[in-house]
């Protein structure tokens, strides 16, 4: 994989980090030849089961590598006084709409930039660019979540100014992103009333991982049968410690509370240590 632009012919990974403000044609010659001539002829004989090889104890967390890279991101961000917030939700919960609104409302208050994660397209990056905000798009290809290495590469391309705020918009998915620490200061899960009240029960890992849970689209409540008391009780069962705020990204409801939360997190001296206990 090309470390500069992330272009890849890897059928499994295929992650691309794209800076929409950079010239579109990337005409570097791609000379990486790696001929794949490793021969390994597979002539191992499959000895009888009694003839066992030797066992090596590893005792290592499977995600140790991701967590190391997340820790490196956390140090990199701390050295620059940059606050990174990881936004996660199912597709269509309103992450990008909330982000657009937030970027407009917070413009001038603190430098803000965005890392956009999607499997494909620059559609969200275009929406963020339209607000006047700097953005770098990470296309994960077949990947269903951002990991710490993608964010490392994204941050280098984004190059956020010291003391600024970076929103990391994860791939829309209520399952996989919950497992991967990115080095962020806080994880925000956005739920919406149109998704139904049973989602915290169905996807408990995501809600359990959150520092803040936003219930979005509350202006639509009069038109829906959404049992908010049940939703909140379930959220509390999986995550008694998280802050919960009701918002409407297209109205005004709760946005002042959301901005207040961002200022509080931004004012904390040491970022939260995510994933350390895993």
């Amino acid at each position: 994989m090309c470390a500069t632009c992330g272009c890849s012919d890897d059928p499994v990974g295929g992650v691309r980090v794209i800076d929409p403000s950079a010239p579109p044609e990337h005409d570097h010659p791609h000379p990486h030849e790696h001929p794949h001539d490793h021969e390994h002829p597979h002539d191992h004989e499959h000895e009888p089961a009694s003839d066992r090889g030797h066992t090596v104890a590893l005792e290592q967390r499977v995600l140790a590598r991701n967590d190391e890279r997340a820790a490196r991101n956390r140090r990199w961000l701390a050295e620059r006084g940059v606050l990174a917030v990881n936004l996660m939700s199912s597709p269509g919960a309103g992450k990008t709409t909330l982000l657009e609104r937030t970027l407009v409302d917070l413009a001038g208050e603190r430098g803000v930039s965005v890392l956009e994660g999607d499997q494909e397209t620059l559609l969200d990056a275009d929406r963020i660019t339209a607000t006047g905000c700097r953005v770098v798009q990470i296309n994960t290809g077949s990947g269903c979540h951002l990991d710490a290495d993608m964010v490392h590469r994204g941050l280098r391309a984004l190059d956020p100014p010291d003391g600024s705020l970076v929103f990391v918009e994860n791939v829309g998915n209520l399952v996989c992103p919950a497992l991967f620490d990115l080095g962020e200061a806080a994880k925000v899960v956005i739920a919406s009333v149109t998704e139904g009240a049973d989602k915290p029960a169905k996807y408990p890992h995501m809600f359990a991982a959150a520092d803040l849970i936003l219930l979005n689209k509350i202006d639509l409540l009069p038109y829906l049968r959404f049992d908010e008391a049940y939703w909140l009780a379930t959220v509390r069962r999986v995550n008694p410690g998280a802050t919960v705020l009701r918002v409407s990204a297209t109205g005004d409801d709760g946005l002042a509370d959301w901005y207040g939360w961002l200022r509080t997190v931004g004012g904390r001296s040491a970022p939260a240590q995510q994933g350390a206990a895993r």
Binding site: V56, L58, R61
Partner: peptide, 8 residues
């Protein structure tokens, strides 16, 4: 979520 051991 741990790798305990590997047999080579």
């Amino acid at each position: 979520l741990r790798i305990r051991e590997v047999e080579v």
